[in-house]
């Protein structure tokens, strides 16, 4: 028999623990990406000399290089300069920064989508910059961004498997560890795949529905 049911049942609880870590990485990583991405998008838009260009380049550079290599850099290079966290924290920061580069683009298109009249009205009312951004522009820009945030959340959920390469013990690493210690790969890897699917498929359905509800209304 190729598929051993008893074995599959026995490893399921351990895999669920791995899934829980994956979910934690995803939620914290998305939070970080959402905040950092917003900061990047606003910094680019403000056109501060040097700083805005540096941010623009960083965003493009992060988008143009593999997550795995970025993770290696954070895991192997940074400790040499005295910056070191545990693998899980490093993983969350790496994936958060990686996705923030994508989120920055989403925010940017959201900000661009705000009609020019809104800016002009804010100027006419002589609102200070902070209030223009905080009360007028961002609330409108972020509305269109919500569904995209959901898409990136799901994407990150799947991408977080890459972090197993820097010893973060999430779902993928758990499955691999079970495989190499028991010499049975079919059950852990298949179950891991099914668990990924069981979370991401309903989630993407939900996001699709959100997308329709949050469609821009101006």
């Amino acid at each position: 028999m190729i598929w051993d049911n008893n074995f599959a049942v026995s490893i399921f609880p351990i895999l669920l623990q791995g899934l829980w870590v994956t979910v934690q990485i995803t939620l914290l990583g998305t939070l970080l990406a959402a905040v950092l991405g917003l900061v990047f998008a606003v910094l680019r838009r403000l056109a501060i000399p040097v700083l805005s260009q540096v941010v623009s380049f960083l965003v493009v550079f992060v988008r143009g290089t593999p997550l795995l290599v970025q993770a290696y850099v954070a895991f192997f290079v940074l400790p040499a300069y005295g910056v070191s966290f545990n693998a899980l924290t490093t993983g969350i920061v790496v994936i958060g920064v990686n996705y923030s580069a994508y989120m920055a683009e989403v925010y940017r298109s959201g900000i661009q989508g705000v009609p020019k009249g809104q800016w002009e009205a804010a100027t006419a009312l002589s609102l200070p910059g902070v209030r223009t951004w905080g009360r007028i522009i961002l609330p409108q820009a972020i509305r269109t961004v919500v569904p995209m945030l959901g898409n990136y959340l799901i994407q990150m959920f799947k991408d977080s498997a890459v972090l197993s390469a820097i010893t973060v013990v999430e779902l993928m690493a758990t499955a691999q560890a079970i495989g190499s210690s028991s010499f049975r790969y079919i059950e852990p890897l298949t179950l891991a795949a099914l668990l990924f699917l069981a979370v991401s498929y309903p989630a993407s359905r939900l996001v699709n529905r959100l997308e329709r509800r949050y469609a821009p209304q101006h």
């Binding site: 190729i2 799947k158 991408d159 498997a161 890459v162 197993s164 993928m172 499955a175 691999q176 495989g179 049975r184 790969y185 079919i186 890897l189 298949t190 891991a192 795949a193 990924f196 699917l197 991401s200 498929y201 993407s204």
Partner: peptide
Amino acid sequence: IEVFRGTSLLVQMFWLFFALPFF
């Protein structure tokens, strides 16, 4: 499409590399 988009690329690669030999 749903299966390959819904699971991680790394899982798929490992599955082809480690699990397929058992078949």
